[in-house]
Structures are given as C-alpha cells and as structure tokens.
Simulated assay, not measured.
Amino acid sequence: MTRTLAAAALAFALMAGGGLWLSQSTGTAPAELPTGAANAQAAEVDTSTIQEMVLGNEEAEVEVIEYASFTCPHCATFHQNVYGDLKANYIDTDKIKFTYREVYFDKYGMWASMIARCEPSKFFGIADLIYKGQSDWVRAGADGAIADELRKIGLIAGIDNDKLESCLTDGDKLRTLVAWYQENATADDVQSTPTFIIDGQKYSNMNYADFSAILDEKLGE
C-alpha cells in the first residue's frame, strides 16, 4: 500500500505553523492557519526560488521524478531496498536524470525537509539518514523530541547548530516549500507516495525489477 495524500489546502494548514513553533522554547503545539488563509497565502508565493534536487545526467532524455514524504514508511522502504540499485545502475551511470520532490503529509515531514535542504549539496546524503532513521525519529515522542532527533541528523551531516536553527525557523522558506509542493502535486496529479513520473508517465510504488524494466524500455535497451 501507499500513503494517500490529504487535500492540499489541509496540508498547507497543517504545515504553516510548524516552522514558527520551532523558534519557540515552550514546546507548545504549532499554530495552524485557517484553510482559507492558507490557500490565499499559497496563491501569492513565488516558488521559483526553490531548488530542484537533481542527480544524474541533467541532459538525459529520460527523467525520473520521485514524489515522496520523509514520514512515509513505503518511501523509506523504497529508499532502502530499491533506490540504491537505481542509483548505481541508472543515475550514477548518467542514463537518467533523477529529481526528488518532497510531499508534505504533516509537520514532521516538513521539518525533515527543512533539515535536508539546509545545505543543498548535502541533501541526498541527509535524505538517506532521515529515511534510515525514520522508524526511530518519527516515534521519538512529543513534537520537541522529534524536532531534536531531526536536529541530530543535521549535526551528524556536519551542519552546525546555528545554521540548523536558522533553517528550521525560516517561516518564509516553509511557506514557499509548501506552495511549491502544492503546485507540483497538482500538476502531476500526485495522490499517494511514493509516486514516480517516468518520462512523463505516472507510476506507483514498485520493486527494482519492475522499475528497471520500465527504464530499459524508455531508454531503448
């Protein structure tokens, strides 16, 4: 099974206050915006500032776009069992262009994304750490404990504490990321995670054998 997306407006309402809470020291629950206000803000956000996270050959004829959530267990399983072979055989060999786009089910996935994007050059390495430790950090307890576990991942990746705090409390970046997610999910009709757009066609979660068969057909191999 894959995880099904909630309505985009609801996702934005859940996310909008998340980063603001991280700037507080009280450990209280994050604030939430009313759905109408969330939609109005999303419509006004310039998402062109968001960097696409890309590996492989930028000029490749075949592009794979993965839509995934850092809190999605099926996405973690894909990254543990399939992604390594995909990277070794198709990404690192420059056969394809691989683009990773985050999906936000909840504030914890949003916070994980803010950590992963804190230093773009380390994004994929941090993403690996987030997925590997997913079963631990998502069950850390209260919001503050989960945030602290994500901070630890950033520290392990070599990001200093001051920079981590700056990334986690960047409300403008948070709102822009959520608006960017909404645009992408709408354009590609993403209803669940993980979802893959391969050479313009949408596919659901799959094993490596099925994935490689599709890629070989697209590549004419």
Rank of each mutant, 00 (worst) to 15 (best):
G36D: 14
A40N: 14
A40W: 11
Q41M: 15
Q41T: 13
A42L: 10
A42K: 10
A42N: 03
A43S: 15
A43Q: 14
E44Y: 00
E44V: 09
V45N: 06
D46M: 01
D46R: 10
T47G: 08
S48N: 11
S48G: 07
T49D: 10
T49P: 02
I50H: 02
Q51A: 15
Q51R: 13
Q51S: 13
M53N: 09
V54D: 01
G56E: 03
G56Y: 03
N57E: 05
E58Y: 03
E58C: 08
E59G: 11
A60K: 09
E61M: 11
V62T: 14
V62C: 11
E63N: 06
I65Y: 11
I65G: 10
I65L: 08
E66G: 03
Y67G: 07
Y67D: 04
T71D: 06
T71R: 02
C72E: 01
P73N: 10
H74M: 05
C75D: 05
C75I: 02
A76G: 13
A76Q: 11
T77S: 14
T77W: 02
T77C: 02
H79P: 00
V82L: 00
V82M: 04
L86C: 06
L86Y: 08
K87E: 05
A88S: 13
N89F: 08
N89Y: 07
N89Q: 13
Y90S: 02
I91E: 02
I91T: 10
D92T: 00
T93V: 11
T93Y: 00
T93F: 00
D94P: 01
K95S: 14
I96T: 09
F98D: 03
F98P: 06
T99F: 01
T99L: 09
Y100M: 04
R101T: 07
V103K: 05
F105N: 05
F105E: 09
D106S: 11
D106Q: 09
D106V: 07
K107G: 07
Y108V: 08
G109L: 08
M110Q: 12
W111N: 07
A112I: 03
S113C: 06
S113M: 03
M114Y: 00
A116G: 02
R117P: 03
